[in-house]
């Protein structure tokens, strides 16, 4: 009897400890939101919301400080767009190739290599962009400045290809084989089956892969901090330098930053804006994905 009681107690205790671990993830989210909001809040007492949105210059550390977030947002949108121009077509082609065309042998060679592509540290990609891609691109575009949005965006695009292709490949492989057979039995080729049946069937999965990739690109830091220059500028010129929200945070936090100073506040303001962007795409992407998984079952 005593043994049974002790056993029950241990079981309850262990369950409680595991529960605490699981609950800690909620605490982390709470802390993220809490610190961002409380540290950024005093900023909006000093800077009007109107200036924040409609001003196009971002010079918070200058004498004549201006706080137009649009400058950083435009840089973020610019590099993300360039990255997507690389990641979308390449991601789709690789995932169709791996899921529909490649035999097991080819797949077993390429899949781990794609994973390795994803494992290269971002600071190394930053080195590539600045030291190798930019000089190469300068041969094609002589006006390209030493720091520019183009090479940062291109390299970022290559960086997220493995992410896009592995998520979309999962979605395509989840398409039931009977659908492929139905198409092939009518005399369709692999290409027709892939693009007319498999991709439309896996559409929500592929769409969610792209949306999650957007969120990735928005939050990417090191490549843009190293290769895109650190000049906040409102505009969408891919050949010139620019600055993203993430790069600004890195730039400012490298200097001496007393807690409570306006510079310190601005990194939390940028953090909130960034989080709002990535969270939106993330939630949309996850919702589509969740619905797809339900449908497949």
């Amino acid at each position: 009897m005593k043994y049974k009681l002790r056993r029950q107690l241990t079981e309850k205790l262990i369950e409680f400890i595991l529960f605490l671990a699981a609950a800690s993830s909620v605490v982390i989210t709470f802390f993220i939101i809490y610190t961002l909001v409380t540290e950024a809040f005093p900023f909006f007492k000093e800077v009007g919301f109107k200036d924040f949105i409609f001003e196009t210059e971002w010079t918070p550390l200058f004498e004549n400080a201006k706080y137009g977030i649009a400058a950083l947002v435009s840089g973020t949108v610019l590099t993300t767009t360039i990255a997507l121009f690389v990641a979308l077509p390449f991601g789709i082609i690789t995932s169709v190739f791996l899921s529909e065309y490649a035999n097991d042998k080819v797949r077993e060679v390429f899949k781990p290599m794609l994973e390795l592509l994803a494992a290269v540290p971002t600071v190394v990609y930053g080195y590539f962009a600045m030291q190798l891609v930019t000089p190469f691109l300068q041969k094609i575009f002589p006006d390209l400045s030493g720091f520019n949005a183009l090479s940062a965006g291109l390299v970022m695009g290559i960086m997220i290809v493995p992410y896009v292709s592995s998520l979309s490949e999962d979605a395509m492989r989840a398409v039931p084989q009977q659908l492929r057979e139905g198409s092939l039995a009518l005399g369709a080729s692999k290409f027709q089956t892939s693009f007319r049946v498999v991709i439309p069937s896996a559409f929500s999965g592929i769409a969610s892969a792209f949306i999650l990739a957007i969120s990735r690109a928005l939050g990417e830091t090191m490549v843009v901090a190293i290769a895109a220059g650190l000049e906040p500028k409102f505009g969408f010129n891919p050949l010139g330098p620019t600055e993203t929200l993430t790069a600004y945070i890195v730039q400012v936090s490298q200097g001496d930053l007393p807690q409570g100073s306006i510079g310190y506040r601005t990194i939390y303001v940028c953090g909130i804006v960034l989080l709002l962007f990535t969270l939106t795409f993330n939630v949309i992407g996850q919702t589509i994905r969740h619905r797809m998984e339900k449908k497949v079952k």
């Binding site: 009977q178 057979e181 139905g182 039995a185 049946v197 069937s201």
Partner: peptide, 9 residues
């Protein structure tokens, strides 16, 4: 086929 397999179109 055994199981109806209309395309999702």
């Amino acid at each position: 086929f055994q199981k109806p397999n209309p395309f999702p179109k």
